[in-house]
Design a binder for these strands. Structure first.
Lengths: 120, 120
DNA sequence: GCCGCACTTAACCAACTAGCTAATTAACCG
DNA sequence: CGGTTAATTAGCTAGTTGGTTAAGTGCGGC
């Protein structure tokens, strides 16, 4: 699982501070100081959150004089949603009954091919 | 951030084993043993992955005799995608130029209201 | 009633994470 | 050059994660 690009993305999104940073960057690029301002945590902490986001491919960074500006990079989010899309049918109300039906059929098929007395 | 329902979901999805378990459950309910079978890790390890998924609301569990069956629960995935949807415009090719334009405008506005010599 | 199966809990370990303060790098400004 | 500003790196701590093996629980079958 070394070439797994999805895990760092979900892992990055698991932190509320990092999600807030992404939300802020959706309004435009920002420096580390600007990004840190709304939070009650130290600058080094923000700096490392940014490193996590960069490693996940969710931001790119550039320097100009003594300022490092971060830019939102949404491509990994597209991959992440693509993965989740496979489950959309499980929460789409219109397909709920069809879905439940299909799952029951598939389970019956599995239970049939290896009938070991396992529960339905 | 105690009442944050999104973080446990993203955190659960950050592990490839857990994503594989969800993928398996999309084909129908399964017992712990069935879920463990494709992996080279111990049963207790699977058991704890399931606990993480359950805590995130991504599965529900029921017992029947000595078997515990897990069922996929996709509602939290709907919440997670809803959060990501806010960024769809950033990767949708058709909107890329409009988007870049809007961000530039917003940045210009910010730079104007507090002109401290910060970079564009 | 106790044997075995399916699974969980307990106890432990190594690696990682998120936070801190202090020190360092890098660039501009006077 | 020396000081200030912006940010990173270093070194620490505490808590979490993901794995292990060994022991415990709960149920059905002989």
């Amino acid at each position: 699982m070394a070439e797994d690009r999805l895990s760092p993305v979900f892992s990055a999104l698991a932190d509320p501070t990092r999600r807030a940073i992404l939300a802020r960057l959706a309004d435009g690029d920002a420096t580390v100081g600007e990004l840190a301002e709304p939070f009650a945590i130290s600058l080094p902490a923000i700096s490392r959150h940014l490193k996590v986001l960069e490693h996940a491919g969710l931001i790119t960074r550039s320097r100009s004089a003594q300022w490092r500006t971060s830019s939102l990079e949404a491509a990994p989010l597209a991959e992440a949603t693509a993965w989740m899309e496979r489950y959309r049918r499980f929460w789409d109300a219109n397909l709920d009954r069809l879905d439940a039906h299909l799952r029951r059929v598939q389970q019956a098929a599995r239970a049939h091919e290896n009938h070991e007395g396992k529960p339905s």
